[in-house]
């Protein structure tokens, strides 16, 4: 068992971890609760990824096939870890499919859950058909056609509302979801590309297209695709009798309330802790930080650690994370796991 790493979750982080484990000459067992691999980008049908611009099904698809074709990886789909015994070097996990996995170390790549906009009802999701989330809009982009779900008309105007389910103490979500600004700018460009007659407005309180995302997404969406950024956090979305949506805010630069008609309103939904985290914490005996994400161990010398020895984590399980960084962290966590096992072998000999 000291040659095996158990990886829970097969999103970008988990897939990256699995490949890193086998590349180091160890075996990986991947447990994924869904019937397919790929995690959020595949299951939610993301369109083009940030920042590569590759379609999710191609880019993450490559990661999936690399793992599926890897003889060093055993995959359990549609399964969860139900209980865990042992300690570093000799963990035994019982799976919901009846199988038992023994492994020397564990990587939790359990990711996140998209914020459910239904919890912010005044923004109209679930009330009006033309109020969508970014994931739904990405799915629409994937179909190659931009149309109002209510009646199929081509929208003249689309509003993207940032910070839906992020930075909002009213609903207990104090964190910034990090990537929505960039994703929204990207989405604005994709919409304009498919539907040049559609104008896209992004309502923001700050723009956080950090690092190299600045010019590639923020500037580009504005300069090349004429996306308009309006400094207003939206208060309420209602509908006017002609079926258009009315977006109510204060344009804080004009210092006036605004009530502006739109055809589609998109919620840039944030990243919640995986809704299974309480269960995951219990099964694996690890701690959660105060927002409900997996608690990170002291980071400087115990990189990718959790509160339990031999169990590591990575990616969005720790908190909102980009796909690229999740992939890197998956590799890092796998390295930590392998290093652990290596140390045990060294110690024994």
């Amino acid at each position: 068992m000291q040659d095996t790493v158990l990886i829970v979750g097969a999103g970008p982080a988990g897939l990256s971890a699995a490949s890193t484990v086998t590349a180091s000459g160890y075996k990986a067992v991947v447990v994924e609760k869904e019937e397919i691999l790929g995690g959020a980008p595949i299951i939610s049908g993301y369109a083009k990824l940030v920042p590569s611009g590759e379609w999710a099904k191609d880019a993450i698809g490559r990661m999936v096939s690399r793992v599926e074709e890897d003889s060093g990886v055993t995959i359990h789909k549609g399964a969860k870890v139900e209980s865990l015994d042992g300690e570093v070097g000799s963990f035994t996990a019982k799976l919901s499919n009846g199988e038992t996995v023994t492994a020397g170390a564990i990587v939790l790549a359990t990711g996140f859950t998209h914020f459910d906009s239904i919890n912010k009802p005044e923004w109209g999701f679930g009330t009006f058909e033309d109020v969508l989330t970014t994931t739904q809009m990405e799915q629409m982009v994937s179909t190659g056609k931009i149309a109002c779900p209510s009646d199929g008309r081509v929208p003249e105007r689309v509003a993207i509302l940032l910070c839906v389910g992020s930075r909002d103490r009213q609903i207990g979500r104090e964190w910034c979801s990090k990537i929505c600004c960039t994703v929204s700018a990207n989405l604005a460009m994709e919409i304009k590309e498919i539907s040049p007659e559609t104008d896209v407005f992004i309502y923001y309180m700050d723009i956080r297209t950090f690092g190299l995302y600045e010019d590639k997404f923020y500037w580009k969406s504005q300069e090349e695709f004429k996306t308009k950024f309006v400094k207003a956090r939206i208060a309420e979305v209602t509908a006017s009798p002609d079926g258009r949506l009315l977006v109510k805010g204060e344009d804080t630069l004009v210092k006036r309330p605004i009530i502006i008609p739109f055809d589609i309103v998109v919620h840039a939904i944030g990243m919640d802790p995986n809704e299974d985290n309480p269960e995951i914490a219990k099964v694996f005996g690890i701690g959660l930080e105060k927002h409900g994400f997996i608690e990170r161990a002291e980071h400087y010398t115990n990189t990718c650690g959790t509160t339990r020895r031999g169990i590591y984590s990575c990616g969005a399980a720790y908190g909102p994370e980009t796909i690229d960084d999740s992939i890197s962290q998956g590799a890092a966590a796998a390295s930590r796991a392998v290093a652990d096992l290596n140390a045990l072998v060294q110690k024994a000999s």
Partner: peptide
Amino acid sequence: PRYLRDYDDDFE
């Protein structure tokens, strides 16, 4: 009232 009701998309 003093609230703004619409944008003129062509003005820019």
